[in-house]
Amino acid sequence: MTSLRTHVHSAPDPLDTIEECYRRGWTDGLPVVPPTPDRVSAMLDYVGLDRRRVLGEVPVRRRTLTAEQAAANVVMAGCLPEYFPIVLTTMQALFDHDPNCIHELSAVTNSTGVLILINGPIRQNIGLNCTDNLLSPGNRANSTIGRALRLILMNVFEQRPGILDRGCMGSTAKYSVCFGEDEENSPWTPFHVSRGFDPEDSTVTVASIQDPELIGNRYGIEGESVMDSIADAMASHGMATYFGRGIQWFWIVGHWHAESLARQGWERPAMQKYIQQEAWRSRAQLKRLGAIRGGIVPGDDAMRVFAAASPEDIHIIKAGGNSGMYSELIMNYYGVLATTLKIQESWS
């Protein structure tokens, strides 16, 4: 235990120990659980990781992530040991995609967060919220898993606002966007199964995202009305600069939207195709905005620029509460496109 890289803090008062974490610049602004050796060791023991194990490197910053550093940040975030495999698999997805993308998450000025979407039995095991208020504070697993990732990015990779985090407006999505699909109440195949995994697999889907946007269509009777609302939000002028760059989209279909669509016979592939075809702006409109350079030429009015290049770039997940007719739309910025991995429980 003494081989852990530790600092001696002279104060037995727990509150002062938290203050010491602030003084050392280790927090995201909220109080953290002090990363004492026993807590960090318990975290490492749970997954069978040697503290010295290098989990990955970000070449452009020449910084590595060790198991000890990961565990210390996961402790500070307030995670239970059962959450640690999810955080580790999330980091694995980022390292697998392109280790430099971890730098890119903070280098871009458009303030990307990281979506952590969980499927499979692990959702129940850790009490993950998949329904009412799933994007709100209030549930330990949802709040602390995403927070752990952010603390790793800040403390290990120096992605602090004003230093290596160059976000212009910042984003509340940087605190935590972690939730599960409401598979039990979904009319459709679970998202991870649609991506080739078994229903009994537990998976994490990771993506770099912009702020989630509420779609408040409480009036649509036909499924097309709901999907037209999604398509219209996707084709927003505020996002036009990203069209044509391979971005993807997550449509988190709320309970009553899903019920209505399923009752009318809508399946995932047909919905993906419909929305992809409806989410566009004309090339002339984008030139007037300045999102595309150059003067308007004949044919630009009829030329469609699609918000999603193909139907498969629209990911459809059923989640959220049943208190009203809502959905959420999340743009997947092209830095880390949706990557799904099976959650690895043992890392020894």
Partner: peptide, 20 residues
């Protein structure tokens, strides 16, 4: 494990190491 004074607590360093 080194014996700690009761007025001391150990904290594991969560930060990354600066490149050489």
């Amino acid at each position: 494990m080194a014996r700690l004074d009761l007025s001391e607590v150990l904290l594991v360093d969560p930060t990354g190491e600066a490149p050489d």
